[in-house]
Structures are given as structure tokens and as C-alpha cells.
Amino acid sequence: MRQSRLTRTMLHLANVLVILFFLLPLIAALIGALQSERSLQAETRSLLPPEWTLDNFRVILSGGTQKGAIFEQATYLPDNVKKIYYALANSAMITIAVTVLTTAFAALSAYTVVRLNLRWVIWLMSVNVFARFVPIIVLMIPLYVTFRQMGLLNSIWGVIIALTGFLLPYGILILAPYFATIPRELDDAARIDGCSRFSAFLRVTLPLSTPALASYGAIVFIISWNDLLIPLILNNRAEFMTLPVVIASLVGDVHVFFNLLMAICLIALTPSVVLVLLLRKFVVQGLAVGGVKG
């Protein structure tokens, strides 16, 4: 259908508006992170600061040891900023562990859902549909009490266990339909060649499912990297905080340095944003290749 010039201009305009809406917070955060608090408060009406500086990032990434020009006079620097490398390490370890565990567990279960025709496994599947609705706060209050008794508070293991359980149902729901698109004949052929069911799963189903495994892995990575409530409730000591918990701890602080906070926010959102832009291409590619090769 041909569009008139007017329609086309309107569509371009609509796209520009949507793009601006999506990018606006990131632009604001970037401008905020690249200036000093003094310039933020001195000139309150102009979009761009009178002077640009990387000192916010320098202060954070040096763990508060290099104060730079901005914080030279500042007598107060939030303690948690000094522990930023603990937070980065905790976030990374938790995210990687949860991604590996959920993907492995979900793949095992999803295979039994589509290949083994067991009634109770189908029932497990509907439990999973249900499970994604349970608000985390409902689970976290009893988990806090239980983990307290088990000595799992203030450790990365408690967070890993809780996040794995919370994200597992998604995995089974995503992987099972994909496994179902792989022809059963491939499984049967492998078994005629002498594979057991389990090695057919390892050698046939899993290698053919890399697109689904990768997109689920990426989704889990993003959700566990971004999650706040679980580590917020389970870990309150600075050594065990994740990046989102450090950010949350700065909100209610005696003094909110917005320039510093914007820099931390940018550091926190970079890994997941980069990953999502990579995932995008991957999903498109995965769809183009299709579920079955030959």
C-alpha cells in the first residue's frame, strides 16, 4: 500500500517521539553523571553543564580513594561507594551462577515435559505457569525467616538459591515449546544408534536448542543482574550487597549525590543493556535459522 507524503512524515515524527521517550532517561543520566554536584546546583535551568568531568566515575571506580576535583572538599562520601568492587563481584558471581543453574535445571525438566509423556510432569508444567504469578515479596518474607535459621543470610548462596527458584519456572516455559519443535525422529534415530534417552537429550536436543538456551540464558542474566528485592532482604552487610542494593542504600542516605548516583546507575545498567542489544541480533538470527537443521 502506498502512503502519502503526509502519512509518511507523521510516521517519522511518531518514531522520533518514541525514540526520544526511550532514550530520554539515559541521556539525562549521562549528562548528570558527567558533571559535578556544584555545577548541577549552580546552573539549574540549562540542559548542558558549564563543564564536563569524569570525576564521578573516577571516584567510584577507585573505591573512593581518588576523590578528584569534585569530592576534594567533600567531607562525606557514602561508605557503600567504597565497596563498589564487592558489589560488582557479588553481582557477577550471583548472575553467572543463577544463569548456569537455571538453564541446566530448566533444560532437564523441559526435556521430560516434551519427551517422556508422564502425567505428573505435565502437572508440574501447570504449576510453573502458576508460579510466575507469585509476587516475590510473598516468598521473601518466609525465606528470610528460613534462611536466617539456616545461616544463609549475608551470603551469596542464599541469593543464588532464591533467584534460581524464582526464575526456574520461566525457563521450563520457554524451553519446553522449543524442544517440542525438534522432530522426535531425531531422538529415535539416536536411540537406534545406541544412545540412551539421556544421551539423546545431551547430544541431540541440547545442541539443536542453542538459540532457545541462549535467549533464556540472556533473560535470566538480565533479571538476576537487575534484581533488587531478594538481595535487599537477605543481605544487609556491605560485603555481600549486589549493585542494585548499593544503589538502593544510597537513596535514603543523609545526602544524595545525584551526579555520583547517575554514574553508578550507568555502571549498573551497562552489562544488561549491552547484553540485550546482543541478544536482539541473536534472537533474529535464531528465528532465521529455524528450529531444525536438516
Partner: peptide, 21 residues
């Protein structure tokens, strides 16, 4: 291309950025 971008931003960071705005 940009549609997935907000999905990746940590909710707490998103909230703080808007708090700044």
C-alpha cells in the same frame, strides 16, 4: 532496535534516573 533497551535497565536504576529527572 531500541525497543528492548528499557527492559534491560535495572528497575532501581530506572527509578533513580527518573528521580533525578
Amino acid at each position: 532496535f531500541l525497543i528492548l533497551l528499557p527492559y534491560a535497565v535495572p528497575p532501581i536504576a530506572n527509578g533513580l534516573i527518573w528521580s533525578f529527572m
